[in-house]
Amino acid sequence: MARAIARVHHNSAIMNDTATNNSQNFSSLSGQPPRLRRTTGAERAAAAGQGAAGKALWSGISLGLLLSIITLIFAPVWREWMFAILPESKFAMQLRTTDVKKLQKEAQRLEKRVAGLRKKYEWITPRAPYLIVDTSENRIHVMRGDEPLHEGVCSTGSYILLKAADQRQWIFQTPRGMFQIRGKKEYPVWKKPDWAFIEDGLPVPSPNAPERFEYGVLGEYALELGDGYLIHGTLYKRMLGMPVTHGCVRLGDEDLRVVYKNLQIGSKVFIY
């Protein structure tokens, strides 16, 4: 039985060798790829090892890239920790003061210089009355130096962007920054601009048409800031404190009277 099995193995080995030789001969003749030889256990293990190494490489790189992204996102936090744990620089404060005599004199000089700068800075604030307009909370402050003279409510720009059918557009925003009073008027007349008609769904008249002029809508006084912006009164007193205007600063009657009385031509108006 054992001899019979050995003969069968021997025959199959001969057949394999013959097949291999045939395939080699055949491939050398026709240029086709050779048929795979049956692999041994060691070769299979080596191949499996290479496959595992390849898999390990790609898994490692993928996870490593993920970790790199996380490291990059948290880099500012890492850096803060490093600043916290690193020792102080050798040029720390106590070393800077070794030349004590010189520094004592310098400190006195510096004190005087800082006091001078502080004084210079304080002198920048106007001594004459000026107006601060807060467009965020719609409030006004009449000031002289650091002293508040009067506080009140106002209305400022609505931030509406009006788009006309003819592609023109206007943004109703109160400008910010420093301005000066350029003119003062009693019982001002409002010359309605184009947007006032467009907003009401009316046809726009010619520049000096009588329907452009409206009396009494701006209150008793108006103060000009330039570029068509005014500080004026209003008929819509219930809207005071809200952002509803077309860019002008609207005030109630009493506040307007105080502002008109205190601010002169050239007085400063600060809007933020």
């Binding site: 090892g49 496959g51 595992a52 190494a53 898999k55 390990a56 490489l57 790609w58 898994s59 490692g60 790189i61 996870l63 490593g64 890239l65 970790l67 790199s68 490291t71 990059l72 880099a75 890492w78 850096r79 490093m82």
Partner: peptide
């Protein structure tokens, strides 16, 4: 990660490929 079991070479490859990029990023960005 079954393939890492009992495979010293795969373990080393995995470990080095895992730390190389984060290490570079840590050095350069931190």
């Amino acid at each position: 990660f079954l393939f890492l079991r009992q495979n010293r070479q795969a373990q080393l490859v995995f470990f080095f490929s895992l730390i190389v990029f984060p290490l570079i990023v840590f050095v350069v960005a931190v």
